[in-house]
Design a protein around this nucleic acid. Structure first.
Lengths: 400, 400
DNA sequence: ATAATATGTTGCATAAACATACAATTCGAT
DNA sequence: ATCGAATTGTATGTTTATGCAACATATTAT
């Protein structure tokens, strides 16, 4: 699948390349003129015009209604701004979780046009049941005419993938060595690319998919819920590692308050966190209780939070030595604890490392609804904007 | 520098792309026929012929003398094998170390054609002195006519780079915020691309540069000497991280035998290792002594080695959670200790991690002479085979 | 010897980008 | 208000590299 070796370009594929480059640019910058595109892609203005003509013919790009004109403060004829036609295409993301199932549909501009979350007993369901249930949810949420314009379906699950897109192991769901994408593809009424991936990876892509600013640099992403998943995004693309399990920050070994090593997720995960607070403060606290108690400065809460911050800082510092991210994004419900503890985390990280190392920026994201489902949709969107399926399907070269 | 956004291709650049693809393929596979290339690059046989014609005209490719013919066990006209012309071009790598300075020249086939190591007091030398010393060494080692064919000079130093190719900090050499590449470039009598990089990164590229088999997957590389440097190679390219310090495995915090955390290099580095052995066994042992004592089964040596193995295993396991390499390559003199302790290391790693994670293959490399210098040369070789300087220099597009 | 198979080369058609020129449209200065 | 400068979008012709199809060539199998 991974060619590794640079594949040659044929005269016909130049156009495809350039069309994709235009779509990417329009996606990242919102709206540009033909001249802008020509400069940015380093092609002649006339070529830019031809490419736009073709894309407009396909209904993917249109001239923006001269709403926000006025801003022509520069001499010369003002350019006509172009934009993606949002509802030209759609992409669907599915999250199959332990307790719920979510679907998100986005359009060509990566805007969410439909979404729904539904309870689902993932732990006690067979794979094929999960697949058909997921497909049913898709059909409920996405009307047929939009489904026909769908250019990709992504499926995110809490599982280890094997690089070929098959599920190697999903302990929380009890699956093992199944081709989930294939199952979903078979049940869908339309022929469309279907890919499965790890939910943390999907979440990571989704969180970096604000559309604006072209992606660059290295971002480490953490999803902190019961477990702690992670993903690494490198220049906008996932870094999957050799076996597809890169970024598993939750399994890093960090010292606990008692000096023992535990997997990071066994310290900063939701259940463990609340359990510890329960032992100190009694009762049956929720995360929101812990948060408000921390805000109120209650000693027990602060102690638990400080241990949490220390462990998190250790894990992050270790990860920074390996991949040197310039940004760390925290997600999941437990990430809410970061805001009040940010100082502690940063100080602890600084104390753990050589002063020559720079501390990355650490931010908290909040994605409503199903983050992994949105991310899975974004992954298909990204895929469409990189090598494409439909357009490149005619690659049937006669070598025989 | 990093465009991130896909840049468009023009009709003239197609050829350049394809020529590069051919050079890459010939480099990785040694010798291929025109038909092989056509299949592999997915171009028409006739196009393949045209591309080869152009490359042969430039003296970069030639038909291989029908030495090892005979192997035509297949029906049909046998193809003419093509190969790179090794001495068509050259690349030079320089290592500026704390105690020595090394130069390696490789040819287009990435064979070493000249090399030399020379003592150098790096810790007490100014940057400009180091640069001119390095250039003098290059001029001594590389004869003028080969220097004229040089297509790139790489400089490797033990330093943090800042992504723009400048040295941010080189504590061992006492440098700070200098553009080393620029200094070297200014002193060279020929106009040639010069790039500087971290020595561990260079070493990593060099160690994965056996030429054979196209690079794929993720390799973690460790250089264990006094310090422990590291590099990550992803599909044959360096993963540098946000600030260019990715792969600094030596700074991972691992628990020592006494339960305290230390940077990995403070446990498994050469000096520390020998120091510990000295305290147990007395005398003034060298690494070779430790190795033979381990082989002889002496208790003190084994104890030191086991602690070493445990710390190394911890560090590697942590790194595996983050980047999930499918290969770990150990280099540097201390790597010799791995062979007798391989079982311990692997067992310790397995014990530290969830059974669902796969253990990467761990191998020891031994590069004679100056590994970083060879790697730096390889980096320039790789650069030439990816976007090129000379050929792409005519990119002066009139955008204003 | 003949058929089958694969390779390398040649002539022609096509696709896409480039260079250039030109009309259109706006800003600034007179 | 008018003119010049600047910038955009489009239309012209040219260049380049590829794809396609055919053919001569070289080897194995029958």
């Amino acid at each position: 699948m991974n060619d590794a070796l640079q594949t040659a370009s044929s005269p016909r594929r130049i156009r495809q390349r350039n069309e994709i480059a235009v779509l990417q640019a329009l996606h990242h910058f919102g709206s540009l003129t033909r001249a802008d595109l020509a400069r940015r892609l380093r092609v002649n203005r006339s070529s830019s015009g031809h490419i736009i003509e073709a894309l407009a013919g396909d209904g993917l790009v249109r001239e923006v209604e001269s709403a926000g004109r006025g801003t022509a403060n520069r001499a010369g004829r003002p350019g006509v701004h172009l934009e993606l036609v949002p509802d030209a295409l759609g992409f669907v993301g599915i999250e199959i979780g332990v307790e719920h199932m979510g679907v998100v549909e986005i359009d060509l501009a990566a805007n969410v046009v439909a979404s729904e979350i539904r309870p689902f007993a993932g732990a006690s369901s067979d794979v094929s049941v999960a697949a058909s249930e997921a497909v049913r949810l898709v059909l409920d949420v996405v009307p047929p005419e939009r489904l026909r314009r769908c250019e990709g379906v992504g499926v995110a699950t809490p599982s280890q993938m094997d690089g070929q897109g098959r599920v190697r192991l999903a302990p929380l769901l009890g699956w093992r060595e199944v081709d989930l994408a294939d199952l979903v593809r078979a049940q869908l009424p339309v022929r469309v690319p279907v890919l499965a991936d790890n939910d943390a990876n999907a979440f990571a892509i989704g969180a970096t998919y604000h559309g604006q600013e072209p992606p660059s640099g290295v971002t480490l992403f953490l999803v902190m819920e019961s477990g702690v998943g992670g993903g690494i995004v490198f220049d906008g693309k996932l870094f999957r590692g050799g076996n597809g399990v890169a970024g598993e920050v939750g399994h890093l070994l960090v010292p606990d308050a008692d000096g023992e090593y535990r997997a990071l997720e066994r310290i900063v995960g939701l259940e463990v966190l609340l359990d510890r607070y329960r032992r100190l403060a009694g009762g049956n606290p929720l995360l929101s209780d812990l948060l408000s108690d921390v805000a109120a400065g209650k000693r027990a809460a602060l102690g638990v939070a400080r241990d949490w911050a220390r462990a998190l800082a250790f894990g992050l510092a270790q990860a920074c030595r390996i991949i040197d991210p310039d940004r760390i994004v925290l997600g999941g419900s437990v990430a809410a604890l970061y805001a009040p503890m940010a100082g502690h985390v940063v100080d602890a990280m600084a104390a753990l490392q050589d002063s020559a190392f720079l501390l990355p920026e650490i931010v908290v994201t909040e994605l409503e609804g199903s983050g992994p489902a949105f991310g899975a949709a974004c992954m298909m969107h990204q895929r469409y904007l990189s090598l494409e399926s439909q357009r490149l399907s005619e690659t049937a070269d006669g070598d025989g």
